[in-house]
Nucleic acid binder design. Sequence first.
DNA 1: AGAGTTGTTGCGGGTTCCCGCAAGATTATT
DNA 2: AATAATCTTGCGGGAACCCGCAACAACTCT
Lengths: 237, 237
Amino acid sequence: MKVLIVEDDQFHSTFVQEALVEALPEVTEIVHAANGAIGEDEARRGEIDAIVMDLQMDQRNGIEAARSIWAERPQSRILFWSNYADDAYLRGIAHIVPEDSAYGYVLKTASRARLKLALRAVLVEGQIMVDREIHRLQRRGTSLRTRLDDSEFNVLIDLALGLQDKLIAERRGMSLRTVQNRLISLYEKLGVISEFDDEVTLNKRVRALNRALVTRTINIETLETAHRDLETWLAGR
Amino acid sequence: MKVLIVEDDQFHSTFVQEALVEALPEVTEIVHAANGAIGEDEARRGEIDAIVMDLQMDQRNGIEAARSIWAERPQSRILFWSNYADDAYLRGIAHIVPEDSAYGYVLKTASRARLKLALRAVLVEGQIMVDREIHRLQRRGTSLRTRLDDSEFNVLIDLALGLQDKLIAERRGMSLRTVQNRLISLYEKLGVISEFDDEVTLNKRVRALNRALVTRTINIETLETAHRDLETWLAGR
DNA sequence: AGAGTTGTTGCGGGTTCCCGCAAGATTATT
DNA sequence: AATAATCTTGCGGGAACCCGCAACAACTCT
């Protein structure tokens, strides 16, 4: 069994390697890649279907790499291994994971035992496994009704890019007023108003982006990839 | 000589420790702290003046910790050791470093030799040392005229918080129109317009925040601390 | 089937934003 | 000291934003 480790941090990379050899005796070969682009190459060339993937990387992040890897070989099993429990990452993964594949998500703060468990469950057994810690963090402050639905999330992305209402309406196929309704519920769910708004009134759009970032609903990488998506959409319009 | 390592990542922490014992034989004791708050305590209790400080930490980040440590013991020598070359961090440090103290800034991607060099230069020799790599990254795309001055940076912070022009004017002691002028130059320097603006017009404020984040002029921690600052300012108004 | 809840859309208007124009004030240059 | 360049400030207006109101449509629950 060949395993690919995609991780740009030297220390973390060797840590995963050690955990791998300890936990999975069936591993015969371990390949390293220092960023997403190299990782894609290695997976393609080596026909590797078991991957441990960091999410934050300079050149090309883990989600993008995973998407193209899964596009070519949907049966690949990928264990994501990340510093943060950002909602944006989970959402990104949920959108690209194929039906018949296995994946997992483990925080880097998890114990070595937990990592080993996830390695076996995902890479060998083909299970789906998400670190409990992530759900705990993710639900923090989100009292059931505060979680964004997909439509709201899309509008949030467009807002974050700086699109104005009319453009969002066109891009998402809604009427102008509907977009504005979405914005209103966004403002509520993100807590744009409830802060110290009795004293001062704020710019809601900016505040929404601010809150979305601080609550880890989106992150800077989200902005970067969303920007690229926007460019392609603008090109073919 | 006692040295304090403030770092929440286990691997990085031991890596620094190893580099320390190799590079500085004069070190007699090494203390670890897993976040900024603990770090402050340890520095105070142990009367430690040589510190290696991570910047990204959950509880209390490195800049805040450094500020309060320097407030009590301005002669402390602190080597900052970070994953990113964000402008926000450099700016934050530049604002709080006392006249008569030594500090340094090294990227985690630097070689072990470079780290050792910085350890000696800052902690032992009391020099000021900033990784060359940082200046290279920092100037990326900033062609001399694109760098924000302090006044523009302040307005950017307020914008990012969602304050509207009138409030910014009050907080920063400018007239309304002056704030708006600052905003215009902000928009230019951040490249708000120059993108694909011939096709679509964007919401400048949101776009400014977006660009500021993507260009690493500010980061999410900046937003969080700025929010606390705003709260105290609002309280005593 | 009927009633209630939720989502979509248009209209209208108050507010904020963005910025051109122009008159002082300040700073830099020679 | 004189001139130029830059910064600050006020005014005014077009555009975008935010949202209350109200009419439908769609969906749920009994």
